[in-house]
Design a protein around this nucleic acid. Sequence first.
DNA 1: AACTTTATCAACACTGTGTCGAGAGAGTCA
DNA 2: TGACTCTCTCGACACAGTGTTGATAAAGTT
Lengths: 219, 219
Amino acid sequence: MPAASKAKPAPVGRGRRAARASGDERERAILETAERLLEERPLSEISVDDLAKGAGISRPTFYFYFPSKDAVVLTIIDRLVTAAADSREEALATMAEGELRAGLRQALTDLYGAFRSRRAVTLAAAELRMRNPEARELWSQVMEGWVADVTAVIEAERARGAAPAGQPARDLAIALVQMNERVQYAAFTGESPSLDEDRVIDVLVDIWLRAIYGTAEPS
Amino acid sequence: MPAASKAKPAPVGRGRRAARASGDERERAILETAERLLEERPLSEISVDDLAKGAGISRPTFYFYFPSKDAVVLTIIDRLVTAAADSREEALATMAEGELRAGLRQALTDLYGAFRSRRAVTLAAAELRMRNPEARELWSQVMEGWVADVTAVIEAERARGAAPAGQPARDLAIALVQMNERVQYAAFTGESPSLDEDRVIDVLVDIWLRAIYGTAEPS
DNA sequence: AACTTTATCAACACTGTGTCGAGAGAGTCA
DNA sequence: TGACTCTCTCGACACAGTGTTGATAAAGTT
């Protein structure tokens, strides 16, 4: 007996049907085609037919594997989001007690790297979020997780007297996390104005440190 | 002679054809219909037929007035953007020398108000920007203007010794302006996480002041 | 009255989505 | 072996939306 045949816990699937046997191959082909095409052009300019053709099947057959174009992208985003969540947790873990400042830079660098390495998917996620509630929900969870962790860090730093009081920690965290999202997105698209890719981290870290540890007075 | 008939300097028009005589009325009806429908649902769920019906004309007749749905929205955005630019200039003008800190709060408040009062249009602009180069360009100009002014303010404050040195003023300005855009957008949609509408200004002003005037050390 | 301009829309061509129903091929089992 | 059941495939269809064409009406001009 080859390997898994019944022992496949239904890949949960962002609304897509469970896969089986030889069909796995097709499914992978569709996902790979989608990732490839997203490197070339925006999601809105990719049709179901493009995905089907790229995977070597007809358009109706595509619908055997995924209920829509959005579902394909959602599956891809799901992976990115999982990877990003791991990056975040790991980064914040190594950032325990004491050297928070250096740890923060590391955390922002790792997270930035996670999205930059999948730039095309990140941009597709932003596009899909505009019109797809499921994509919105998925992204929302990433942001919530990130905000929750940052809030905890800020509160801990304030509690041990390392950071001065100020706006509610969660409010501060929301604004900072959203700043990162927008600044990174702009750097990826290269729109103008935007930060050069190699300036992003320095600028963001500086603002984070000042927002968390600084006051509004020059020293 | 009624009034203007030939003496109409062709309203430049975001790609739309010049209007005339009784057609002006229709054109206005289309724009008003668009604004009204945008209060109800996202741009992607509004069709050319919806706009035509709302203005009391057939779909082909719509194309006599505007070349596409996007052109209608672009015209609307153009007005918002012009109003926002005025807000910005005015706010920064009253913010001359000295009381920069209070002026900054006023400037952010005014700009926030300009977009909040046209929430539906602001959200449509964000949506259109994703897939329309002209909308991107238009938005880009607003951001550039804003960044240029903020850069000048930061440099002036540093020059007179009121603000400490730090990241290049323009880089700082880009990140701060983009933070505002994202935080305001999130507050408008009410996505989660997002700041409560009445917390937005306090939080943003605090971060701006710390980023510009503060250092990364608690006082 | 002939002519021009503005304004209107039915009918068409086209692109893209998603569904239906008729199979083909592979595996099961009686 | 032959009936049965899966998985997988796709031609043909129905639909929704965009944008164009060409015929025509109504109003203004000469």
